[in-house]
Design a binder for these strands. Sequence first.
DNA 1: CCCTCTACCTGTCAGC
DNA 2: TGCTGACAGGTAGAGG
Length: 275
Amino acid sequence: MPELPEVETIKESLKQKIVFKKIQDAEILCPKLIKFPEPAGFIKSIKNKKIKSLERRGKYLIAKLSSHYNLIIHLGMTGQLIYINSDSHPVVDKHTHLFFNFDDKAQLQYNDVRKFGAIWLVKDGSLRFVPGLSQLGPEPLSEDFSLEYFQELLNKKSIIKYVLLNQKNLAGLGNIYVDEILFRAGIYPERNAQDLSLSERKKLYHAIREVLREAIKARGTSVVNYIDGEGRKGDFQKYLKVYKRVGRPCYKCKTLIKRMVLAGRGTYFCPKCQV
DNA sequence: CCCTCTACCTGTCAGC
DNA sequence: TGCTGACAGGTAGAGG
Ligand SMILES: [Zn+2]
């Protein structure tokens, strides 16, 4: 489900609802999703903590809590955060694996069909114990992600799709947006990074930022089951140019979109527009 | 370091 | 109707 634009949308939709609320208690229904600490310690430590802020880094959500605690959530493929306000009756279904009760009787549920998500509760200064988070590359929409930095990333003999998917290079891109970005830049997904010309590198750099900005504006892509914290779907699936469009005509040139497997992932591209 | 493959899970859909 | 296999937004770890 969630790449940078979806996680950003979830963060924004939940922010106004949960920041400044106090967590009265929590219940864990699927312990394997809690990576740290062990379930009993998790429940004990999170009780009576106030949510001070909600942030995003790559595909991770970070809730800063009182007493220097940080609740870190990665949604995996199918994770959802569902906010249920105080006048509705919360319903726990078979894919609800964790929920928090707030002091005003509202509830926040974590649902996840495939259970690839991961949750940590760590104190400030221990964020390095969250494996992927501490190794993330720069945020693609920040100033840290400069053209110069990007040029350096490309000076290796790796397949370009692989470079863009690697979270250590760049935080937040996933399979959908990488395919869409490569289409926009007119680059064949299996090209070698170091073979890209200067103009292709620039085109790619701008495509990354444009596609992400547009996807955030559309509040993300709902392929199967993505919804934000208010249960709303995104709109960006209406604007996808190649992802999941195998056998259908390219919007630019009418050539049929093709699919191949790269880095173990379905990869969609236009054989004529992407060279 | 680079890359590929596998595992982790559950659900859906096409084909027989 | 089954059954089977391919395919799904994710990352991590083993091994070449
Ligand atoms: Zn085309």
